[in-house]
Lab assay of single mutants.
Amino acid sequence: NQASVVANQLIPINTALTLVMMRSEVVTPVGIPAEDIPRLVSMQVSRAVPLGTTLMPDMVKGYA
């Protein structure tokens, strides 16, 4: 089972991601792979992401 990136806190719209905002977790459906966490740092979210939400490619500007 592949771990995905999950929000560790509420991430407001247009916030630049930092390591403390993200954790890896095995979830369904699968989201952005956990190994991409270093690449996500400083990228902005395109919408508010609630705590515990799996990050999907369309939620991060410039990821897809």
Rank of each mutant, 00 (worst) to 15 (best):
N1M: 15
Q2D: 15
S4K: 01
A7L: 03
A7I: 10
A7R: 00
A7G: 03
Q9Y: 12
L10V: 10
L10T: 13
I11T: 02
I11H: 01
P12V: 06
P12N: 08
N14M: 07
T15R: 06
T15S: 08
T15W: 08
A16M: 09
L17F: 02
T18C: 04
T18A: 06
L19M: 12
L19N: 05
L19V: 06
L19W: 12
V20Q: 07
V20F: 14
M21L: 07
M22S: 00
M22T: 01
R23F: 04
R23A: 05
R23H: 04
S24R: 09
E25L: 05
V26C: 09
T28P: 01
T28M: 08
T28K: 04
P29H: 06
V30G: 07
G31W: 02
G31I: 02
I32W: 02
P33T: 12
P33M: 11
P33A: 13
A34E: 10
E35N: 10
E35Q: 12
D36G: 06
D36S: 14
D36T: 11
P38N: 13
P38L: 10
P38I: 08
R39S: 09
R39L: 11
L40R: 01
V41A: 07
V41F: 09
S42L: 08
S42E: 07
M43L: 12
M43T: 04
M43E: 05
Q44T: 14
V45A: 11
V45M: 11
V45C: 05
S46W: 13
S46A: 15
S46T: 13
S46E: 14
S46I: 15
R47P: 03
A48H: 12
V49H: 02
V49F: 03
P50N: 14
L51F: 14
L51W: 14
G52S: 09
G52D: 07
G52E: 04
T54P: 06
T54F: 03
L55N: 02
P57G: 11
P57F: 08
P57S: 10
D58R: 08
M59V: 06
M59N: 07
M59E: 03
V60M: 04
K61N: 09
K61F: 07
Y63F: 12
A64L: 12
